[in-house]
């Protein structure tokens, strides 16, 4: 398999990444959230778990060396390079329903990451449904939690050309939504394209 493509905001990508292969996600224009889910390619129920990943590494944020764990505690992938320095896995994906809660009824029909996820898994088939959508990673997104219990959405720490590189530690299925959210600073109020590039082992 070879991947070398640009994903516009509001679009997505789904595909298998074999064990040992690397995949680079590049924030071409800066401040762009890339909502990402991972699955064991041979057992989709053994999927990425944000809470297990956070707990087992004792850290809220993902960066170089972070192991992306599954619900069964398996390492699905490792972040092997990161020129951005911090990625979120607490904030989840935007959805039309949560947009209404957060920003009011006028945002009801704006495009959202969950719609992209649902479209991509429908295209992929293989039994994937909404039940398979769980709490995701937001590459290049900055959602600090404070010792006092606060949470904020901050301007991204990313910049044009920053990238993160994953190495698949087993055969994985990767699901990506390039976030179209326009109501908060996670995309700088202006969603922009990303690129996906793979490297053979």
């Amino acid at each position: 398999m070879t991947v070398d493509l640009v994903v516009p905001p509001g679009a997505g990508w789904i595909g298998e990444v074999p064990a040992g292969q690397r995949l680079r996600i590049t924030d071409l224009y800066g401040n762009q959230a890339v909502d990402t889910l991972l699955y064991d390619a041979h057992d989709y129920a053994n999927r990425y778990s944000a809470v297990d990943t956070i707990r087992e590494q004792g850290s809220l944020y993902l960066t170089t060396g972070s192991r992306l764990l599954s619900v069964d505690g398996d390492v699905l992938a490792t972040i092997v390079e990161d020129t951005c320095g911090r990625h979120d896995t607490v904030g989840g994906a935007c959805a039309k329903e949560s947009n209404v809660v957060r920003y009011g009824m006028s945002t009801r029909h704006q495009h959202a990451c969950r719609t992209t996820f649902l479209r991509q898994i429908a295209l992929w088939g293989d039994g994937l449904t909404k039940r398979d959508l769980t709490h995701n990673i937001n590459f290049f997104m900055n959602v600090p939690l404070t010792p006092a219990g606060g949470l904020t959405f901050e301007d991204g720490v990313s910049a044009p050309g920053k990238y993160v590189e994953l190495r698949a530690e087993r055969d994985i299925l990767l699901l990506i939504s390039n976030c179209p959210q326009i109501n908060n600073p996670c995309n700088g109020y202006d969603p922009t394209p990303i690129s996906l590039t793979d490297f053979a082992p």
Partner: peptide, 14 residues
């Protein structure tokens, strides 16, 4: 239950 939506909509870490 969606914990990310619950926390981010109400700006809380817990």
């Amino acid at each position: 239950l969606n914990i990310p939506d619950t926390l981010k909509a109400q700006m809380s870490a817990c």
